[in-house]
Amino acid sequence: MGAEDRESLFTRWLDGHGGAVLKVARAYTLTAEDRRDLVQEILLRVWTSLPGYRGEAGLSTWSYRVALNTALDWHGKEKRRRGRQRPIIEVEDPPDPGPDGPRQAARRELVERLYAAIRRLPPADAALVLLYLDDLSYREMAEVLGISESNVGVKLNRARKALGELLKEDSHGHK
């Protein structure tokens, strides 16, 4: 693959699927700084993996697999690192109040609760939920995760139930 082809393919992928990278990173990180680091790691991994892209799966399916595998690898390394090192204080980027005020703040809170619950799922279930939230078909989810379509249905049903329980616990003030 030539440098121009690679750059064109990467740019096309980023234009169409950059939001998916942010969703994956958000589900596997706790802080804005970690999220930025993971996004950079995913983008780097996609870029360096592009010469190996054979076109057997769609570009979005292939890149999702790269993004999820990168996030899972990063999550494991980060978990081990955090076990050895504790930050003095976690600093999050302040939320943008937005033009809608209270309604926008309520929506942001709901999204934050959802991502917090997704982070509490086992990593494979979190990946499946992210694919579902991104409106991938069962066939596409199966391709990304390397499992059968029927297994996607079973695992997704279990993950949705677990996610519902986590959200219910969270809304009742339990963790």
Rank of each mutant, 00 (worst) to 15 (best):
Q85H: 11
L43W: 12
E78T: 04
Q85S: 13
L156S: 12
D15S: 15
L136N: 08
P99K: 07
L110A: 15
V39R: 01
R84V: 13
I147H: 08
G164Q: 04
L9E: 10
L43T: 00
A126V: 04
I89T: 11
G164F: 08
Y28E: 03
Y138H: 14
P94C: 13
G153H: 08
R81V: 09
L167Q: 03
L145A: 07
M141P: 05
Y53N: 10
D73K: 02
D125Q: 13
W62C: 03
A57I: 09
I88S: 11
E92G: 13
K23S: 15
R103Y: 12
G55C: 12
K23M: 12
R54C: 01
L9P: 01
G18Q: 03
L44S: 10
M1V: 14
L156W: 11
I89H: 01
Q104T: 07
D100Q: 10
L156Q: 08
E90I: 15
A32N: 10
T29D: 07
V152P: 00
L22C: 04
T61W: 06
L72K: 14
V66L: 01
A71D: 05
I147N: 04
G2H: 07
P87K: 02
V39T: 07
L145M: 15
A105K: 04
R12P: 07
S60W: 13
T70V: 05
S49C: 09
G83Q: 02
Y53I: 14
R12S: 15
D100T: 08
P122H: 08
L156D: 14
E140D: 10
L9Y: 08
D100I: 09
P51S: 10
L22S: 12
D34N: 03
R6T: 09
H174A: 14
L136Y: 07
P95Q: 10
P95S: 13
L72P: 03
V111E: 08
Y132E: 02
A116H: 03
E109N: 00
G101F: 05
D34H: 06
V111N: 05
R36I: 13
K161Y: 09
E109H: 02
V21W: 00
A20N: 04
G19Q: 11
L133R: 09
R35H: 15
H172S: 14
H174C: 10
R119L: 06
R36Q: 15
I88D: 12
K168G: 10
L145F: 03
R12Q: 13
L121M: 01
S148D: 04
P95N: 12
L166E: 01
R45L: 04
P51M: 11
R119T: 02
K175C: 10
Q104H: 11
L59W: 00
R6V: 04
A3Y: 00
E92A: 09
W47P: 00
R103T: 12
R45K: 07
A3L: 06
S49G: 11
A159I: 05
A25F: 03
R158E: 07
P95R: 09
A106R: 10
G76C: 11
A126S: 12
Y64M: 14
A142R: 03
D37N: 08
R160K: 06
R26I: 00
N157H: 11
A116D: 12
L121K: 04
K77E: 15
R36E: 13
P123A: 03
A159D: 02
R45Y: 05
